[in-house]
Amino acid sequence: MTARGLTKRFGQFTAVDAVDFDIEAGESFGFLGPNGAGKTSTMRMISCMSPVTSGTLRVLGLDPAHDGPAIRRRIGLVPQEDTLDLQLTVLDNLVVYGRYFDLPRKVIRERAQHLLEFIQLADRAHERVEPLSGGMKRRLTIARSLVSEPDLLILDEPTTGLDPQARHLVWDRLYRLKQQGVTLVVTTHYMDEAEQLCDRLVIMDGGRIVAEGPPPDLIARYATREVVELRFPADDNAEVAARLDGLAQRHEVLPDRLLLYTDDGERLVEEVRRSGLTPERTLVRRSSLEDVFLHLTGRSLVE
């Protein structure tokens, strides 16, 4: 998949602003960014559901403007909002969807059985979808997107709104798909999801790509090895930050805490104590994509 100067405008509003990216077959590629960064608009363009305003886009070597149906035949889409039929049974949702792809009913039923086992819903096959939990519905949406055995799976925020256990189950299933050679394209505003799932990712903000690379490289490039988080009782984090100037390689002032970037967190905490400051809480942790995003945009990923 290749995008050059890919742009999406809605009237005066530019949702995606001339982005470039390349995604290789078999790769697991992420779009990380806060809400409104243009991730979903990008997903809708690459899944051939939304026309490109300008720029070029090739998906599976084809042009979405002319070959939409042919591309969609080879794509599995997990949209941000589930589009399951709540009144139909779990199995019928798969059968109906498979029919859209003109698969023979027998083939769909065979695949459905495997898929329902894969997402651990085999025992609910004949139940209606409506009462299922959010995590189960999400897994069913993923199973449904796999009925057509796609070469490319596009997942728009696959685990938003799920509890931690459900998220880990989804991640595990996606990881297995990746091992089977399915190309994954994932959007998320969870840095842990991006770190778990993506070989390579772009960070989007305000419709633009602000950084691109494998997660560890991005962290190495834009953050230090460790981060010290300090919380002070007073509200004047900025004033405290001024006093700490020079101790850390870099710092960020957040409304509720102060982040100090360093390669040796424990030593920095010692130095802070020695300088006479008494933080209410201190936390030393490894840098994450969250810090990369904060550094690049000055804002947190999830407000």
Binding site: S47, M49, G68, P69, A70, R72, R73, I75, L77, P79, E81, D82, T83, L84, D85, L86, Q87, Y97, Y100, F101, D102, S145, S148
Partner: peptide, 14 residues
């Protein structure tokens, strides 16, 4: 509500 049309449009249907 059910967004069925969108499910269809994610497939080869136009």
């Amino acid at each position: 509500w059910m967004r069925t049309y969108y499910a269809m449009l994610a497939s080869p249907l136009r």
